[in-house]
Each structure stands twice: as C-alpha cells, then as structure tokens.
Design a protein around this nucleic acid. Structure first.
Length: 154
DNA sequence: GCCAACGTTGGC
DNA sequence: GCCAACGTTGGC
C-alpha cells in the first residue's frame, strides 16, 4: 500500500465537487506529465491512500482524504477533440495518457500549505520542495501517518 | 498578474 | 543528442 498527494484546482474539481459526484468518485483526467502518469500507471494500486490537495487557488492545502479506487486506464479526454486535454498523437490503440479513479474517504478542515511548511516532520515532502510542480507525488508512510493522525481535524 | 522553476519541443 | 525557446505550474 502506497500513499500519494494529488493536486486539483478547486475551480476544476474541488473537494465539494468530489463529494457531490456519483459514488463520490472522479476520474483523475487531464494529467499530461509523464512522471505523474507513470505513478498512476505503474505504482498505484486500488486502496492506496490519497491526500486531496487544492492548488492554484486562494487557500492552497490539503482538503480531504481519498483513495485510489480503480487501476489505471486510458484517459478519455485525450480522444476528445472538444477537450483542452485533447492529444492528437494519442490513438485508441496506443493511448498516451492514463488515469485512475479516486474516491472520497472524508472531507477535512483544510490543512493549509502554510501549516504543512511549519512541521519539521514534513520538511522532505516532495510537494513542499522548492520548484516542485508535479501534480502527483508519493508520500512517505511516516508523512501520511503524521498528517492523518496529527493534523487532521474533521 | 508576476515570475521562478521546470518540462517539452524542435532545429541543427 | 544538444540546447534555446517556449509553455505550464502554482505560490505569492
């Protein structure tokens, strides 16, 4: 079992959007970075823990706990000419982009980026490193444990 | 809206 | 296969 931090722009899909979806589940579409794709394709398993992170917004931070609930499969938006994620180089036979489905476990009161930065236990977290832009990053089990047991207030 | 950091593209 | 130019990310 692995642990992940996954960024979503709340103007696109917020934690409340996720809560309102059927089965409180969303396809993690739109990832167009090979490293992030490879995490989903090669390393994620059903049941992995996910921190749902709000990025590029007024209050960046961890907004909820979720879990991986499907294996990776081709991202439908790469084939959709009307989508901003359309990729002309992708074919049904040879898709370029994959995604998993992610299911809400619980919404939490936001753990702000500022607060994450305050804890020495989290100083090595990938997302907090200078210049990091990856939208999906692995978490150490210790980081997951610290956040979910010490920082979460539901 | 700015801009630093980083990934991708494409000419050579 | 190098690397300059360009595009994107995401905090501020």
């Amino acid at each position: 079992m692995r642990y992940w931090l996954m960024k979503s722009e709340p103007s696109d899909v917020s934690i409340d959007d996720l809560a309102s979806f059927p089965d409180q589940t969303v396809a993690w579409y739109g990832v167009r970075n090979y490293q992030a794709r490879n995490f989903m394709r090669d390393q994620m398993s059903v049941g992995d823990g996910v921190l749902f992170y709000h990025s590029n917004c007024k209050e960046p931070g961890i907004a909820g706990i979720a879990e991986v609930c499907s294996p990776a499969y081709p991202d439908a938006t790469q084939f959709d000419k009307n989508s901003k994620y359309f990729d002309a180089k992708a074919t049904q036979e040879q898709p370029r982009w994959m995604n998993v489905d992610v299911k809400l476990v619980k919404k939490i009161s936001l753990i702000a980026l500022d607060e994450l930065k305050r804890h020495p236990e989290l100083e090595h977290m990938r997302t907090l490193q200078r210049g990091n832009r990856l939208s999906i990053t692995p978490l150490d089990p210790a980081e997951w444990k610290f956040i979910t047991t010490q920082l979460v207030n539901t």
